[in-house]
């Protein structure tokens, strides 16, 4: 494993920890999109179908379990926890799941490396992960005022994606036959979706002011 990949996984892990910390200690999920969190739970559930059939490494299995458990518990907190769920911006978080799920599923049925259930689900999870942040970005745009933890959560997710691109470039030059167009293109699309957010995040950081997105 190269340094970019490890750093990518660690920022991904940190994003989840920041979010759980916000929910668990402040008992608030204000500014967090339940739609995005549900899509992530679906992403992990469909991508890690191999968790009990193909052993890759202990690291791999443990990380998969962490991402599955954390994504489903975040959804549980936001839907079921009697205090946390009250802070959910339900009226602002109106993005429709199906608008993202259906096109990704159709695309995965036609574009995949092998037409098997596991492989189509894996490809679907890549496409869906690429766009799963959209409801969150829409919610940020609507609420405009973003608290520090929410800003850090989205920033860490974006950093994870950027580091994965560096990981692919590194692997392409160091490993033979490492060509994965589906992964790369969907990963690139996903990272580009954060570009706008990053621009405002760095500006607010540089000018040392509270992060605020334009209307």
């Amino acid at each position: 494993m190269n340094i970019f990949r490890l750093a990518g996984d660690m920022t991904h892990l940190m994003s989840v920890i920041v979010l759980l910390l916000k929910i668990h200690t402040i008992k608030s999920c204000a500014g967090i999109s339940l739609k995005t969190q549900e899509l992530y739970a679906l992403v992990f559930a469909t991508r890690y179908l191999d968790i009990f059939t193909d052993f890759i490494s202990l690291y791999n299995t443990i990380m998969k379990l962490i991402f599955l458990a954390s994504s489903f518990s975040i959804v549980w907190y936001m839907r079921q926890h009697k205090i946390v769920r009250r802070s959910y911006d339900k009226d602002q978080d109106t993005f429709r799941h199906l608008f993202l799920i259906l096109p990704c599923l159709l695309l995965a049925l036609f574009i995949n490396e092998k037409f098997t259930f596991k492989e189509v689900m894996w490809t679907f999870s890549l496409f869906l992960e690429a766009v799963a942040i959209l409801p969150q970005l829409v919610l940020l745009q609507r609420t405009r005022n973003i608290d520090n933890l929410t800003g850090q959560y989205v920033f860490l997710l974006g950093a994870y994606r950027a580091l994965y691109i560096l990981n692919w470039i590194y692997r392409y030059f160091t490993e033979p036959h490492y060509v994965h167009w589906i992964t790369w293109i969907s990963g690139l699309v996903q990272t580009l979706l954060y570009a706008d957010f990053f621009y405002y995040y760095f500006n607010s950081w540089k000018n040392n002011v509270k992060l605020q997105l334009p209307a």
Binding site: R5, D9, H12, D50, D54, I56, S57, N60, M63, K64, F67, N112, E113, K114, E119, W122, Y164, N167, R171, E175, H177, Y178, H180, I182, T183
Partner: peptide
């Protein structure tokens, strides 16, 4: 094939 390389990623 997709079953090698990239499948060790998360």
């Amino acid at each position: 094939s997709a079953s090698t390389g990239v499948k060790d990623e998360l």
